[in-house]
Measured scan of single mutants.
Amino acid sequence: TTYKLIANGKTLKGETTTEAVDAETAERVFKEYAKKNGVDGEWTYDDATKTFTVTE
């Protein structure tokens, strides 16, 4: 399944996707990606669109 991340960070803005077996796995991947890019904010997830959003 393809999951999408929308990053609304102070230093990183944009979108990326990952293939994962479930939302929990995708969330781990995206949180690691955000951490590597210095983004720390509020996370939301929309199951209907398989989209995570992080906003600083």
Rank of each mutant, 00 (worst) to 15 (best):
A23E: 07
L5Y: 03
A20S: 06
F30M: 03
K4Y: 15
F52H: 01
Y45G: 00
V29M: 10
D46P: 00
K13S: 11
L5E: 01
T44Q: 09
T49L: 07
F52I: 01
T49R: 06
K31I: 06
L5G: 01
G38Y: 05
R28G: 06
K31Q: 07
E24F: 11
V29E: 07
T17W: 14
G38P: 01
V54K: 01
N8E: 09
L12Q: 07
V39D: 02
D46N: 10
E42C: 12
K36C: 10
T53E: 05
T2W: 13
D22T: 05
L5K: 01
K35C: 11
N8S: 09
K10T: 13
T25G: 08
A23Y: 14
G9Q: 05
V21N: 12
N37W: 15
D47V: 09
K4N: 05
L5Q: 01
E27R: 11
A23H: 10
T16E: 05
E24R: 11
T25D: 08
T1M: 11
D40I: 14
T44S: 13
V54T: 02
A48P: 07
V54Q: 02
K36V: 12
D47A: 14
N8I: 15
K36Q: 13
A20Q: 08
G41H: 02
A34Q: 02
E42R: 10
Y33E: 03
A7Y: 15
N37K: 10
K36R: 13
T16F: 15
K36M: 12
D47M: 09
A48I: 11
N37I: 14
T2R: 11
Y45E: 00
Y3C: 02
V54F: 13
L12N: 06
E15P: 07
T51H: 02
T44W: 08
K13M: 12
K36F: 09
K35T: 09
A34N: 02
E24H: 10
A23W: 15
Y3Q: 01
T49Q: 06
D46W: 03
A7P: 03
T2H: 08
K36P: 02
E24L: 12
E32Q: 10
F52W: 06
D46L: 04
D40M: 12
K36A: 14
K4A: 04
G41S: 02
E19W: 15
G9I: 10
V21Q: 12
D22L: 04
K4I: 13
E56A: 09
E19R: 13
Y33W: 15
V29A: 08
D46K: 03
Y45K: 01
G9P: 04
D46A: 04
D22R: 03
T55I: 10
K13F: 12
